[in-house]
Structure formats: structure tokens, C-alpha cells
Design a protein around this nucleic acid. Structure first.
Length: 534
DNA sequence: GTCAGCGTTGAATAG
DNA sequence: TCTATTCAACGCTGA
């Protein structure tokens, strides 16, 4: 018996290595509806947000998504099909309605391990199985099935990278089937194919600048280009990359394509592997290029197996720390006006590009949390989640847990200096001058600490500190010492495990910190002033 | 229970 | 300019 099939795209915006699409087209498929449902949660304009975009996503990532959808539609058209774009509210509800109205017998979609996706898909699956619809929901966003790894580890996710790598083994190869045509798209009935909207149709203004174009075609091109230098691929060492390189980034910048599934992680893995077998010299995980893909898997696995992974409270693997609730400090960080050019330039790059080098992310995340400002990692996470075009729930939360020394990494005495860390890669401050043009004429001697420049120098550079560019919001020298002290006390509070730390204890320690801060502020101005004028 | 060894990516200093 | 060593030091793992 021939059936009507639906392939539901969410992530996995690609034709290659797409098991859901492959299953949907095969067998007795009469008509095939490739659909994408515009999710109002993701796309509807939010005027109150701190940057243009929706409640969840900044404009850059929305634009990247639309470009990816347009590219997918083009590819489907080459195969005699097209992408049917639907709107009509909640995606799970839309799905249930079209399954009924189109008399669908087979539903295929890529498995999604994020909590939002799990809840959404569960609702669709409940309906589908009650209605006798065949559901195929393969794991193809990641190399491994997180549930599988957790089973192998005795029901708990591995909490160290090394133990994860031991459990993981080798991933399956990408599916190799080629096809030149897809079954026709069926009658839509009452539904309208609204097509891939433009950014203006969604109610937004133009995107001023986007250095990375979305879509599978662009992803494959970018991957091929990067992989053409085989020696560079084989000897890739992540910690040696230059976070200040922006004309030609030090890494692949394939993360946004992996995030949306424009690029299959399995294809990328196996293309790297092909280079490895012929290479003379080779780096290994965790620092190798393949090792980077395994980091992605590691965070997907822990995120899937940890309740409340994206929160401090109720998160079993997260140190309970009384972070400071200071919206002004947060805003200065978010808007790139902390007065530390290295930090601010990175935050401007985030705003403009939606992407920064991994170590640049480390620098600003450390600065916001345990390094200098002691602001809650969840606040920084929210800013990254919104502005990054590669923003990925598991990886973003995992890295904020890591950088804030809340989980995975605990050496809180190792703090990135907002002054010397960038300087060691970019002593003349090219990166700062590019993203903070107000400082473009500041002599290199002062570019990382412009508040130390004599007034005559500031005048000559046409940049008066405190007027044209802010004074530093804290003294790093003082702040990083205070942060270490606080982290020590917070860790002591956690000695019995995070679950033993109740609200009361947390509030009590926060009060103590507040008191110490106000005492320091009374004595502080002298110290601060001295520093600001030396 | 104890303790050495270890952990993708620190800073400052010495050579 | 680049590399190696020192400093101070965390929690987790496994013998």
C-alpha cells in the first residue's frame, strides 16, 4: 500500500547524510511533504529584547536560519520537490493537524535531544502512534546517541572528556545513498505554503552585516576549503589558535553549520579521518580537530543526561555559588563598555558577527563570572545564546558551566587577564582597533590599558577615557583577588555536594559578600584612583 | 580512607 | 621571539 510521507525539518537542514529524508523517500511513498514549521517562539519579533530579534534569537541567527532554509529549498527543487514552509502557531499542533489532514502514513524527523525539542516531539509522537502512523526518528545530529553512551556508562553520563572518549568508540559512517529525484509533493489542502520568508517579511529591518552565509551548500564549500590544507588539519591544536585573528579566523567556523545541521557531523568526522590515515604527523584528542567534534558529543551527552543542565539550582553537577545580581555590570559587559578594550572588542565582535574564537569566548566568560565581575553565568549564557549564530543549547551551557568553574573545571585560580591574555597574541592591538574604532589611534603601549595613557596621549588619539571610551568598571588587580577569595568560600559551602546547599546558606554567603564589598568600597576609592591614574 | 597523578587552552619569569 | 619552568593550586579518579 502506498502512503503519504512527511519529512519534518527542524535542525538537520541538509540533503546529505539525512537518514530521515532517506527513509521518507524510500519504500511505498506516494507523495512526500518536506516541511518546515515557522516556530513563533523562535521567530516572532520581541521589541523588549536588548538586541534586534525574537525572544530567543538575535537577528544574525534568524538570518542564518532563513538562508539555510532557502538553500534547502533550492536543493529540494533540484530533486523535483520543494520545502513546504508552514506557519500557524505551535509546531507540534501544526504537525498534528497536517498529519490528519494529509492522511499521512509515515512521519520522519531527526531526533532532537534538547529539552524543548523532546517535549515538542513527544506530543507529536503520542498522536502519531495513537493514529497508527509509522514514525522514524533517527539520531543524525550527533555522532553518537547520547542515550546509548549513558547506558554504557551505567545510567549516568560520563563527566570527564577522557571517560567519554573511552566509551564513545567510532561513529557510524554517513549514509552514502545517492538519489536524483524525490517523490512529488502532495496536495496541501487547506494549508498555504508561505515559502521561506525574508527577514523583512518577519517584521525586521535589514541585517547590516553578516560574514557567514547559512546553508548546506555554503557548509560543504567551507568544509572542503578548510580540509584542502591537509597538514593544517592533521596538526590542528586548539589551544594554539589565535583568538585575535579575524581576517582569517584560526578555526574552521563550521560551528553554525553543525548547529543547524547544514553539515553532518558524521560526514565531517569521516572526511577528517580520511586525512588522518594518510598523515605523517598527527595531533590527538582533546586538542585535535577530531577532538573538537568529540567535545560537541561530550556536552550533548552530559546535557541530555543531567536534569536542569541549563540552571544552577537543581543541577546536580553544578557548584552552588552566590553570584552577584548586578544588572549594570552585566549591561556594561553585554554592551561592550567595561573599559577593558580586549573584553569590549570581543563583545562587539559577538554583536556584529555572531561569532568569536573559542578562546575569546573564554576570556569574556571568565571576566563576567569568576574572574572579575562575579555575575551569574546564566546571565552571560543568555547573552551568548541570543547573539551567537552557532548558539547550541548543550554546548553553550556546558561551556558556561566550565568557564565559571561551576562544573567540569575547578581551577578557579587560573584567571584570564583582560589585559595580558589578548596582548600575547596581538601586541599591537589590531583586533581592538578593528572592533573599537574609537581606540584606533591609541598608541600600542596603551591599547590594552587606555586609562593609563597620559591625557596628552589621549587627546592626540582623539579618545578621552571617561568621555569617548569608558573607564574600567573594576580594577582587575583587585577584582580577581576578591573573586578567588569568594570562589574559595563558595567551594567550601559545596563540600557536601551541590544538593546540600540550600537557599538559606546561599543567601547567607551572598550577604557576607555584599558586606565585604561595601566595606571595600569605603576604603576602595583611594586604591582605585591610584590605579586609574598611574 | 589516603594520596599521587591528572586535567584542551593561566600568568609571570627565566633563558 | 619562542619555549620551558615556576608558582599556587582546584576537584576528581583510581590504585
Amino acid at each position: 500500500m502506498e502512503v503519504n510521507a512527511v519529512v519534518w525539518f527542524r535542525k538537520g537542514l541538509r540533503i546529505h547524510d539525512n537518514p530521515a529524508l532517506d527513509r521518507a523517500r524510500r519504500g511505498a511513498t506516494k507523495v512526500l511533504y518536506p516541511i518546515f514549521v515557522l516556530d513563533p517562539r523562535y521567530l516572532e519579533r520581541d521589541r523588549d529584547a536588548f538586541s534586534p530579534g525574537s525572544a530567543r534569537a538575535g537577528l544574525g541567527r534568524i538570518q542564518f536560519l532563513l538562508e539555510s532554509l532557502t538553500d534547502l529549498d533550492k536543493s529540494l527543487r533540484r530533486l523535483g520537490s520543494r520545502l513546504v514552509v508552514l506557519r500557524g502557531g505551535d509546531p507540534a499542533e501544526v504537525l498534528v493537524r497536517v498529519l490528519k489532514e494529509w492522511n499521512v502514513g509515515k512521519l520522519c524527523y531527526e531526533s532532537d535531544t534538547e529539552p524543548y525539542g523532546q517535549a515538542r516531539d513527544a506530543r507529536v509522537e503520542v498522536f502519531a502512534s495513537a493514529a497508527g502512523i509509522e514514525v522514524f526518528s533517527p539520531v543524525s545530529h550527533t555522532l553518537f546517541d547520547p542515550a546509548d553512551i549513558i547506558r554504557k556508562n551505567g545510567g549516568k553520563p560520563p563527566l570527564t572528556y577522557q571517560s567519554f572518549v573511552k566509551l564513545a568508540g567510532r561513529p557510524l559512517p554517513p549514509i552514502g545513498q545517492q538519489f536524483s529525484a524525490l517523490p512529488p509533493v502532495g496536495d496541501l489542502g487547506e494549508w498555504e505554503d508561505v515559502g521561506v520568508p525574508t527577514i523583512q517579511e518577519l517584521g525586521y529591518g535589514d541585517v547590516e552585516f553578516s560574514p557567514f552565509r547559512g546553508g548546506e551548500s555554503e557548509a560543504l564549500k567551507r568544509m572542503d576549503e578548510y580540509l584542502s590544507d591537509k597538514e593544517k588539519v592533521a596538526t590542528f591544536e586548539k589551544p594554539k589558535g589565535d583568538p585575535s585573528a579575524f581576517l582569517k579566523p584560526a578555526t574552521t567556523v563550521l560551528s553554525p553549520y553543525l548547529k543547524f545541521g547544514c553539515l553532518s557531523s558524521r560526514l565531517f568526522y569521516h572526511r577528517i579521518q580520511e586525512i588522518y590515515v594518510k598523515a605523517k604527523k598527527l595531533t590527538s584528542p582533546p586538542v585535535s580537530l577530531l577532538g573538537q567534534l568529540l567535545w560537541r558529543e561530550f556536552f550533548y551527552t552530559v546535557a541530555f543526561g543531567t536534569p536542569n543542565f541549563d540552571r544552577m539550582r537543581g543541577n546536580e553537577i553544578c557548584k552552588q555559588i552566590p553570584w552577584k545580581d548586578d544588572d549594570q555590570l552585566l549591561a556594561s559587559w553585554r554592551d561592550g563598555r567595561t573599559g577593558f578594550p580586549w573584553i569590549d572588542a570581543i563583545m562587539v565582535q559577538l554583536r556584529q558577527w555572531g561569532w568569536m574564537h573559542h578562546l575569546a569566548r573564554h576570556s569574556v566568560a571568565c571576566f563576567l563570572t569568576r574572574g572579575d565581575l562575579f555575575v551569574h553565568w546564566e546571565k552571560g549564557r543568555d547573552v551568548f545564546e541570543r547573539l551567537l549564530i552557532d548558539s547550541d543549547w548543550a554546548i553553550n551551557n556546558g561551556n558556561w558551566l566550565w568557564l565559571s568553574c561551576s562544573s567540569f573545571f575547578y581551577q578557579y585560580h587560573r584567571i584570564y587577564s583582560p589585559i595580558t591574555f589578548g596582548k600575547k597574541y596581538d601586541p599591537t592591538g589590531k583586533f581592538i582597533r578593528h572592533f573599537l574604532p574609537v581606540l584606533k589611534d591609541m598608541p600600542k603601549e596603551y591599547i590594552y590599558e587606555p586609562w593609563t595613557a597620559p591625557l596628552s596621549v589621549q587627546k592626540k588619539a582623539k579618545c578621552i577615557i571617561g568621555t569617548d571610551y569608558p573607564k574600567p568598571v573594576v580594577s582587575h588587580e583587585v577584582a580577581n583577588k576578591q573573586c578567588r577569595q569568594k570562589m574559595g568560600e563558595a567551594y567550601a559551602l559545596n563540600s557536601g555536594g551541590p544538593s546540600q546547599v540550600n537557599d538559606e546558606k546561599l543567601v547567607e554567603l551572598r550577604r557576607k559578600f555584599d558586606q565585604e564589598e561595601s566595606t571595600a568600597a569605603d576604603q576602595g576609592p583611594k586604591l582605585k584612583q591610584k590605579r586609574l591614574t598611574t
